[in-house]
Simulated scan of single mutants.
Amino acid sequence: MKIEQIEFFVKNAQEWRHWFEQKMGFQWQSMTEDAQTVSHILSSGEIQLKLSSASHPQSPVFEYLQDHPPGVVNLVFHVQNLDTILERLTQHNWTYCAVQGYHKRGIIIEIIDGLTQTLLEDNRNGLSKVSNRTVTGINAIDHLVLNVPTGQLEPVVKWYSEIFDLIPQQQFTIQTEQSGLYSQVLVHPQTGLQLAINEPTSANSQIQEFLDYNGKAGIQHIALRVEHIVKATKHLSLSGVRFLTTPDEYYQDLKGRIPPFPLSPSQWQELEQWQILVEHQPARHATQGDALLLQIFTEPIFGEPTFFFELIERRNNAQGFGEGNFTALFKAIERQQLQRQENGLH
């Protein structure tokens, strides 16, 4: 199971095509249009995005945007076991329909209200894709994050485990003086596809704020794998992409840890300058270098406090997610949330 494409519903696909080209370094591939909807396809490395907007009030995009802000509406996956998935869906009495507009056998299902998933059959080993290189080094999707309402985490995790064979991995409980969340990370055993699912622990949680603004459960952010996070962050920043800020105390705390992080003074200076989060994973064997998980997060891209991107670099095959970075992200979003409340925007 591997991601083929991610579709967004936006107000103006042409304008957002230019945004992704000019700010994120994506390359335009093609355009499709019918009587109701226009779509632009862009790519970066193995990543393919579809940006759709309405050209007529009867378009499904127009209807969607009446009740929800722009965001992710459809995840397209290649799967090698479509018949097995069909059997499981039938056993669970889950409705699905045959997919249209693709050259492969497939189905489309709605996991939660407003978020569909398209499964296309692909029997090739490895599910390889053609990859194009870009100046940003953004080359693959590392993971997706889905926010669900209180009480829905367990059943949604169960659904993905039973239908798609995703395996539960790390669990997180993040709690600050203001609010918190529960999170479960799921991983596909063959392809390494990672999906994190969050639910709020209080009415004022940032996860609940997302749900309130989004009008439903949905994809909170997509993590983009990069070759060199400092270069990518610098390029995107100079192009006008805005990132969440990190307080100085975060780096002071990291520098004071024992054992110390394996970073030179110049490397620390780079991370602090561009406000990149870092987690250290000690080497398991003497012949291996220490692994570093490096992450940074954009501000919400559509105006509403909903969808954003993450840049992530995994040095020396860093695995999973560090709780320190997870907590730092939560606090960064919480600071923005509190600022909106102080400014009377919520």
Rank of each mutant, 00 (worst) to 15 (best):
E279A: 02
A223G: 06
Y250R: 09
Q281K: 03
H280E: 01
L254D: 08
H221N: 09
V230K: 06
H221L: 09
D290L: 02
P262H: 00
T246N: 13
T246W: 15
E272P: 02
Q295R: 04
E227S: 15
R284E: 15
W274A: 02
A283G: 04
W274E: 00
G289Y: 06
L277E: 00
L254V: 12
I258A: 05
A217S: 07
V226F: 01
F243V: 09
T246E: 12
G215A: 09
F210S: 10
Q295G: 14
H228Y: 03
T246C: 04
L293C: 05
I296K: 08
L277F: 00
Q267D: 14
V226S: 07
Q275T: 01
S264F: 08
H221R: 04
K234F: 05
A217W: 00
N214K: 14
G218F: 04
Q288W: 05
E270H: 04
P260A: 13
P265L: 01
A223I: 05
Q269M: 09
A232V: 07
Y251P: 06
G289P: 01
V226E: 03
L263H: 02
E249T: 15
R225L: 09
K216H: 07
H221Q: 10
F210L: 10
S239W: 15
L254P: 13
L244E: 05
Q252E: 06
G218D: 01
L211P: 02
A291G: 03
H285F: 11
Q273T: 01
Y213P: 08
K255E: 11
E270M: 10
E209P: 01
L292H: 11
H221F: 07
A283K: 11
Q208W: 03
L254M: 15
E279M: 03
S237Q: 10
A217H: 00
Q208A: 07
R284S: 08
Y250N: 05
A291F: 02
R284G: 07
L238V: 14
D253W: 09
R242D: 10
K234G: 03
Y251N: 11
L211W: 00
P247V: 08
I276V: 12
F210Q: 14
P259L: 08
V230Q: 11
L224K: 05
I229T: 06
H235V: 15
Q288V: 12
S266D: 03
I229R: 10
P247F: 03
E279Y: 00
A291N: 02
P260F: 10
T287L: 13
Q252P: 08
K234V: 14
A232P: 04
V278C: 06
E272Y: 07
F243I: 03
H221T: 02
W268M: 04
F243W: 07
K231I: 14
F297K: 05
K231G: 06
P259H: 04
E209A: 13
E227G: 12
Y213R: 05
R225P: 14
